[in-house]
Design a protein around this nucleic acid. Structure first.
Lengths: 346, 346
DNA sequence: TAGGTTTACGCAATCGATTGCGTAGATGCA
DNA sequence: TGCATCTACGCAATCGATTGCGTAAACCTA
């Protein structure tokens, strides 16, 4: 067995289609068609080419192919915040669905610098990327311009609903109705002063959830006075900070609907530190059904997002948009109210 | 203002460098050099080209450039499991660091199908991707072959330590020492029967953490008998299932070192359901310091991984490996023991 | 066996950006 | 003014895969 020494001479040149052609004794076009399984190639030739490619460790050059085909089989996923567990879970399913569709995904996390997405939009418009998956309400301005100009764009938004924007496909749930369901559940449990811990005021989902809260209270003839709305945010820390304000309220609320699970975690932890019992002294509900909601003490009542379905459907929709001539449309999926101990009357 | 109607004629062809050249009244080579800021171009020409490019909404075609340069500025990140919050957090920082270095990242989630990574390895070897970032112990077989053949590969592993493999750069912590620190802390608190909830038996980190547990017990003259080792896994559910076995043990352990935070979550939740108090009846410690460990009841003692530093350093290391001729090496970063209520004697 | 059809494959152009080399014009110096 | 030098730019080849079109050989029919 010859001992191989790493030298420059040893670093074999990366084989190209022409190399495979030479080895198999055919032309490059034949190699291309053989590997792609295209028509006018004998089974025997195909075998020979496949064998040569395998032995040489050959793989098609992604960039050469994309250049020629003007199609990259690349989707870009814009993610606002991976620290929120909603997104990795969604991303996981997006990735799998894209793989199943024959696409690869690039990701761009835009929490630090939203401006960053502009560069990728250029790439989309320049044809370097086939499509974009938005997982938040944010939409790069350049895209809005193009849509306003009536240009058809391979873009799908999911997780966050599209408030007042046409020309972009979407896969979402009825956020207002989902929030309504949570508050309706609390009201039916007999809670009378149901507060709402609001998310970031400009977030579409936060706005919708607040609206659902108001509607449900109105339907139950319960108050939704200003003091029952607590402006917070989506992070654990936001919930934690809100706790002080809540426990100090003169007539304390007997239930709180948090705009997401994470703020509910922080709220519950802080309420307990202040000696309040959940749900005996104050009931809490969240929104998202993250995996930790089930190990919280008490387990958290929340809304389960169909993240997997959202991911799969949005990828398929984007694929259709890229490949066929599907039109833009919005799909609304069903959500599910998950009732756990944090909201139950004892 | 002319009303634009979306027609095929309206769908402007994607501008190429030649188009910009025509508009600016120069050649394509000049456009290329002007946009890249390369030497023999007048400032005035550069301005004119930049202006033309901007107005036309021009962006360089990624694939044409990559084909020509034989370099894509693309890194692939292989992720075993996005459902474990370690990974999204790491990924977030990797993404940012890569962006800062001028690289884009593609991700591939290999939980469902590890075989999937083979395709990407082909791409790496075929030159379609510049480098690969491994975030687990798993290394595609093809890569091992190449390394065995003495080929220099742009690959960096992080988060998980490299057990017995040369030729791959790494950024890691001293897992054994970190586990040792946790158990040492428990022993110093006065716990005598310190059990270990083990992770997947083949995972390098699980093996290392078990080893640290044994070493610390030995140093403290405490038993590490077989019955104090409980085989479990890394998921919440694994911890939950282990609880039944633990509470039923004849001499019950008074402390448990879990191989990660998630299994600790499940364990704590299940122990509490069985009426045991943490830490009064049984202390618990984890490993990872996920963001939820701070809102657990009780807050969880754990090891904080320097995920951000790991991400940044591994990206920089990969970049160096790709661009320069840096050699492979392993960097060991410092960890931090985070003591919280779950392990404190009352 | 002549003429027509089919089969299996090769030739060469093409995608868009980059870059070594060549060159026209401007500038400098004697 | 004559010649060398420098500046700013263009020409054309190149990267590797794909595909319309052309063609030699094999096959069929009358």
């Amino acid at each position: 067995m010859p001992k191989r020494k790493p030298t420059i001479a040893n670093e074999a040149r990366i084989p190209t289609m022409a190399d495979i052609a030479r080895i198999a004794g055919v032309s490059a076009s034949t190699v291309s068609r053989a590997l792609a399984g295209l028509p006018p190639i004998t089974e025997e030739t195909r075998q020979r080419v496949a064998q040569a490619a395998k032995e040489a460790g050959y793989a098609v050059n992604r960039h050469a192919r994309s250049l020629r085909l003007k199609r990259s089989r690349l989707m870009l996923v814009l993610i606002p915040n991976l620290a929120n567990p909603n997104f990795p879970d969604l991303l996981m399913h997006i990735d799998q669905a894209a793989y199943d569709c024959g696409y690869d995904i690039m990701i761009a996390h835009i929490a630090v610098d939203p401006h960053r997405s502009d560069r990728y939009v250029d790439e989309l418009l320049a044809g370097s990327i086939d499509g974009v998956l938005l997982t938040s309400n944010y939409c790069p301005p350049r895209i809005l311009e193009c849509i306003a100009a009536g240009r058809r764009m391979p873009i799908v938004r999911t997780l966050s609903p599209t408030p007042n924007l046409d020309g972009i496909s979407g896969v979402q749930i009825d956020e207002v109705k989902a929030a309504y369901d949570v508050v309706d559940h609390l009201a039916k449990q007999g809670y009378k002063r149901i507060a709402h811990l609001g998310g970031p005021p400009k977030e579409a989902v936060a706005i919708a959830r607040k609206q659902g809260w108001k509607l449900a209270l109105a339907d139950h003839g319960l108050p939704s006075s200003r003091d029952l709305f607590i402006q917070a945010g989506f992070r654990i820390e936001d919930g934690r900070q809100a706790a002080a304000r809540i426990s100090g309220m003169p007539p304390r609320p007997d239930a709180i609907f948090c705009s997401n699970d994470e703020s509910a975690y922080g709220l519950i932890a802080a309420l307990k530190e202040q000696g309040l019992r959940v749900p005996q002294d104050i009931a809490v509900a969240g929104f998202d059904d993250l995996s930790f909601s089930n190990v919280m003490d008490p387990p958290l009542t929340t809304v389960r997002l169909p993240r997997r379905d959202m991911a799969e459907l949005s990828v398929r929709k984007l694929k259709a948009l890229i490949e066929d001539e599907t039109e833009n449309d919005i799909t609304v999926l069903a959500h599910e109210l998950v009732v756990r101990a944090s909201s139950l009357k004892t």
